[in-house]
Nucleic acid binder design. Structure first.
Length: 554
RNA sequence: GGGCCUGUGGCUUAGCCUGGACAUAGCGCCGGGCUUCUAACCCGGAUGCCGGGGGUUCAAAUCCCCCCAGGCCCGCCA
């Protein structure tokens, strides 16, 4: 609905003025939409912006395509305020199940996220990747795209070789109740300590790496076993965060199926190839200072080669490739994009996010310096359970536990997704455990409140004629939802949805405090209940798209 | 040394790509509001040289240049 208005007004301005851009912006408190076209036309028309705006408002007011829209010139600004038809149409749309869904598309999208090395549990830095990725995935599906979500398993890296060395050489039995990924981290940390003491171990690790690349059956089996165990741990962590992957793609498969060898042969033929002892690309003409190494002098491939093979495979099976990667991958990500372009392959779009650190500094799995996602989940559920128990002592324990799980999940996911990805953050227990304003639970609470009103109301006849400023403001906020979904898809910035959901909850809370619903009567009660139903549905869709449970009571 | 990202009230943060009407919100602070639809809430108030300096423009938090501070990256690691 909002999108339709945007197009109609934009076209009318362009037709009337001959401008190529209608310069439409959000009207803020002045209007629903505004245009600054009068400034742009001032020079060519040799007229004051005030006069241009005034004249244009007069002409546009007569345009039949803009019926029902109030058009006013406020100084040099052209203000457009939508009328009652817009508001009632919004309400009708927002009552539909799946409000905000966009038309089905045929572009097949593959989205890769998380892809952490399987050498220890996921920590609060990794899950920023998971939550940005999973939210994007949900938004793409809502926007009508067929989508596959993948986890790229780095199963042949040095870290894994170190883990395997640890299992072969150290006292490495799994402890009572120890989760697989935590167990692997313990062995990995211990093995790294040994490596620092004894350089000879590095040679043994190198041998393991060669054996696995050459396909030595026993070594491959060991690598696979430990990596699989670690992934089992990850799956539990991700499930607790309501994050899901459709497919786990193993890096070593691209050696075994010959794809890496094939892409290396193609790379050799590029004019940028330098095939001396190593095979590398010279990408200096594109602004890259270092060599992009593809194959070692001993003939084995490096990560970059397998990654290129992986992305070529994705390009062959999908129309659009999106990767969510940490800022430490910016250089290699750009080199990958550059090389894919040189090969004539599809170029992946990469969503980068900056690091999460601890107050005492960067996280490090190797040094055992991290806050694991499991610890965060455990702690936040505990806190949420205490909170629910204080607020709803009459509920039985089982119900309180269920609510606490949803509230905890909401707090974690929202706390992470609300921040722009290009901002680096410092993990803060106090903020992560906050269930008040600008939090996931705050939005859940607004939704639960709407549910409660609707439940008490019973049946009512729908009424689409809103009257008061608060009612109309809320309806207009609801109207923005589909365009929010659209902008997340085009900008690949999920925090836009997080901000919107919070603003919608804010607007509803204000409405709630000024406009009685159940205590009003007749048509007023009907139209407010209709509005509450619309906002409840929109909040539900927003929350679910953020991967947060839209619970009915809390 | 080079490249990328960030810098917005005491703290956290939106807006920056696509320049426009008094810069968004929260925490904290001050003052109000629960016998009334769930107070995980609402209302009011104080707090901003939008890191600094130049420039472009009728107009700059937003675009360009320089500088400062912090983070990340620059490996025959992944």
């Amino acid at each position: 609905m909002l999108h339709d208005m945007y197009v109609a007004i934009g076209n009318a301005i362009k037709e009337t003025t001959g401008a190529t851009d209608a310069l439409l912006t959000d009207g803020g408190e002045h209007a629903d939409l505004a245009s600054t076209i009068a400034f742009a036309l001032a020079k060519q028309k040799k007229q004051a912006p005030l006069k241009i705006a005034r004249d244009l408002a007069e002409v546009l007011a007569k345009n039949q395509a803009l019926r029902g829209i109030t058009i006013e010139a406020d100084g040099p600004y052209l203000n457009f305020t939508f009328g009652s038809a817009y508001v009632s149409e919004t309400l009708r749309e927002a009552l539909q199940p799946g409000y905000g869904n966009l038309p089905k598309k045929s572009t097949r999208v593959v989205l890769e996220h998380t892809s952490a090395n399987p050498n220890g549990p996921l920590h609060v830095g990794h899950i920023r990747n998971s939550i940005i990725g999973d939210t994007l995935a949900r938004v793409f599906r809502k926007a009508g795209y067929p989508l596959e979500v993948q986890y790229y398993v780095n199963d042949m890296g040095r870290q894994i070789a170190i883990v395997v060395w640890g299992f072969d050489n150290l006292d490495s039995a799994q402890q009572e109740g120890e989760k697989e990924d935590a167990h692997i981290a313990r062995v990995y940390i211990e093995a790294n300590r040994e490596i620092e003491k004894d350089e000879g171990i590095t040679r043994q690790v190198n041998i393991l790496m060669q054996l696995v690349e050459n396909g030595d059956a026993a070594t491959v089996k060991k690598f696979r076993r430990e990596v699989s165990r670690c992934l089992e741990g990850f799956k539990v962590t991700l499930k607790d965060l309501n994050v899901a992957h459709d497919r786990f793609v193993w890096e070593s498969d691209f050696i075994r199926n010959g794809n890496t060898e094939r892409i290396i042969n193609k790379l050799k033929r590029l004019p940028q190839a330098r095939d001396d002892e190593t095979l590398a690309l010279d990408l200096s003409e594109f602004g890259f200072g270092n060599k992009y190494v593809i194959r070692r002098s001993d003939g084995t491939s490096v990560y970059a080669a397998r990654d290129l093979a992986f992305h070529a495979w994705k390009g062959a099976n999908f129309d659009r490739i999106i990767d969510v990667l940490g800022a430490d991958h910016k250089l290699i990500g750009s080199q990958l994009q550059c090389t894919m372009k040189l090969l004539g392959e599809k170029v992946p779009e990469i969503v980068f996010f900056e690091f999460v650190s601890l107050p005492e500094g960067s996280m490090s799995t190797r040094a055992g310096k991290f806050v694991s996602a499991d610890d965060l989940t455990t702690e936040i559920r505990k806190r949420a359970f205490e909170e629910v128990t204080v607020r709803r002592p009459e509920l039985d324990e089982e119900t309180r536990r269920t609510i606490a799980r949803s509230v905890g999940l909401a707090a974690i996911r929202y706390d992470i997704v609300k921040v722009s990805p290009e901002k680096s953050t410092v993990f803060n227990w106090k903020e992560a455990l906050d269930f008040e304003r600008q939090s996931g639970p705050y939005i859940q609470y607004a939704h639960a409140r709407a549910c409660s009103i609707l439940e008490k109301a019973g049946s009512f006849s729908e009424c689409f004629e809103l009257e008061t400023d608060q009612e109309i403001a809320l309806a207009k906020m609801i109207a923005r939802f589909p365009m929010v979904i659209e902008s997340v898809v085009t900008e690949l910035r999920p925090h836009i949805l997080a901000c919107y959901a919070r603003e919608l909850a804010d607007t509803f809370n204000t409405f709630y405090h000024f406009e009685p619903v159940l205590k009003s009567e007749g048509k007023i009660r009907d139209r407010r209940l209709t509005l509450v139903k619309a906002v409840q549905n929109t909040l539900k869709e927003s929350l679910q798209t953020l991967g947060i449970d839209a619970i009915h009571t809390m």
